[in-house]
Design a protein around this nucleic acid. Sequence first.
DNA 1: TTGTAGGCGTTATCAA
DNA 2: TTGATAACGCCTACAA
Lengths: 388, 388
Amino acid sequence: MNVSAYIDLCKRLHLAWCEISCYWLKLELLGEGHALRADLDMGKSGQPRASGKRPSSPTLEDVARMSRVSTATVSRCLNNPSQVSEATREQVLKAVNALGYAPNFGARALAAKRTNTFGAIIPTMDNAIFARGLQAFQEELGRHGVTTLVASSSYSPELEEEQIRALVARGADALLLIGHDRTEKSYAFLEQHQIPYVVAWTFNKDQARPSIGFDNRKAMASLTEHVLRQGHRRIALVSAPKSGNDRARERCDGVHDAMMANGLEPADLVVIETPYSISNGAKAFERLMEQTNRPTAVLCGNDVLAAGALTMANKLGVDVPGEVSITGFDDIEIAEIVSPALTTVHVPHRNMGAGAAKLLVGMRNGASGATRIELQADIKLRASLGPV
Amino acid sequence: MNVSAYIDLCKRLHLAWCEISCYWLKLELLGEGHALRADLDMGKSGQPRASGKRPSSPTLEDVARMSRVSTATVSRCLNNPSQVSEATREQVLKAVNALGYAPNFGARALAAKRTNTFGAIIPTMDNAIFARGLQAFQEELGRHGVTTLVASSSYSPELEEEQIRALVARGADALLLIGHDRTEKSYAFLEQHQIPYVVAWTFNKDQARPSIGFDNRKAMASLTEHVLRQGHRRIALVSAPKSGNDRARERCDGVHDAMMANGLEPADLVVIETPYSISNGAKAFERLMEQTNRPTAVLCGNDVLAAGALTMANKLGVDVPGEVSITGFDDIEIAEIVSPALTTVHVPHRNMGAGAAKLLVGMRNGASGATRIELQADIKLRASLGPV
DNA sequence: TTGTAGGCGTTATCAA
DNA sequence: TTGATAACGCCTACAA
């Protein structure tokens, strides 16, 4: 007889299913045969569950009753096994297994005020920009027995604010956030609830918050230097929308920096803002090619846009890098498989993710939150960039 | 004076911070000036919080006290606003805002036995295979006020079993699962806890479970037909590991089907099993090219493997499709941006995701779980497949 | 329309 | 080493 059969039987008898099944399973475990005894132990929860909507999961109490110990002992078995005698522990674990018991997370969080769950809010899951970093983040947290909850904000500060509330309400002990741009309310909320957080994917010496990342502006300036060194003078930038995205702004500033340093007029830079996606990158490139004074180099805010641009170039028969050079940013896998391969900025995805995890774990354990870590991003020169 | 200053003050006074700040903010709200009054309403929870580790978040009770109503009324305000008078509601919402109150999810779940959270366990987040489908799933659920929790199992049934337990413990009301392959215990657990679930990304008429997907075997057979029709006879398959992955097995069977239908010997099919990744695809292709009797067509279990194969072909100077044809499966974005573009199977990602969401919502609301939906997957012929 | 009170499943603090 | 028992924050009959 299997568990679902128990449940059925119990329903028919109008009994709490766990009452019966516990008892019955106990008989089996003890090798006392399979007869359903009449003298069921009808304790205080022996009555049919009040709401009785669906047979609810077994609880600590069920396990306790089945193993003839108190709920406290069962709880200890699961959380501090060392405090329980060998024999009892064995009993209890047997019951746990037999019942398929899984602790109720909500109740646990309520009582323990700690969930061992951290949250991560990334702007998008659509493309792979954050995938590798997030993966590293999760892995590192896993090593510390911490679960990761992920949400995405679609690059909207308002939506992110909601997500923050949602994750905190769900008991997130700490949060990973991307970039510094968010609503005042978001920061106030975090402060008020005393939730440790770290800002990743960017390092900005002017921001005092705990953070780990690289200097987007410097990196983009450095890439632009390479481009200018190839003789390009008419350059364009396809950027993500800059509102609510400090990384995008900084990258744009980086281009300006390099232009000024080389005696070019930043105002001459053609900038197209469009959300990160392959098709948007393609469209933007197409528009640029329709101009009378075509740029000879198109810098893209990330690899996804660049891949789109490259595809469009192929479609239009524009030779890359012969006629136009194209660069990306991020160095995700796609950068190497398009042809020609993308010149791009290699971002330390995994280090940022893992580093952020370590920072947060430290903060949760009481470390001061003043840490700011700058990582390096370096240029990957590949075939998509050539001389003018 | 801001919130954190309140907190500081309260700490110094050894008071529950919320007590003070509630009162103070209330004064502000009422326009009664900023003086801290001495006659603070020190009700039953007026004493400093026992543990006092960190100033905990405001609770329903705090809001209730601040707006001078009962907790029940506040709760109703948030959940069934219609049952509360306009005036009271306004009062309460003001307090909620002032306090930055966010309901404690655990407590809510505990009391309401319903979380409005569904879980999704996908094999991997590493590549984009499931991204679009998942996105649609989330969007559809969002429309029903349901939050999505995502976990990934790394294609391991054992890990998936853990994830299932974790999500259920976290209060997932229903689950989205990929494929039919999982441990007996997983199914038993779902049954025991009466968690509605739907199996997606595959449709198999022999499986009675609620499911939505397409026939992987038929789709792959159809693709193979196209390949054979181009005159290919020496073909190879680069597949994901088949253990624990029914989709991979079915795709392989599909190739066999088409071969038999065309008088070829399935045993002659060279199969390389390797986890989905670009680099693995590249390695597999390299191995195939080292054979004495090179295949003229390399079918790949998905687009990621195919993209890797294609990259390696370019690197090796193997002309595609001149010397070797390559095909993928899934039709994710990458398929169109590689060159030559991939011939592949277009999978109804978004329909599967949205459909699964609708099914689950229905099941949670009491619909019978017997539904099985078959969607169509169709072949996208692109440049990577040519005549032999 | 509002308030009172019991209970949800755990953990943690005391005693025993 | 164990067992009572009081929180934990919220929802929801049931009463008023």
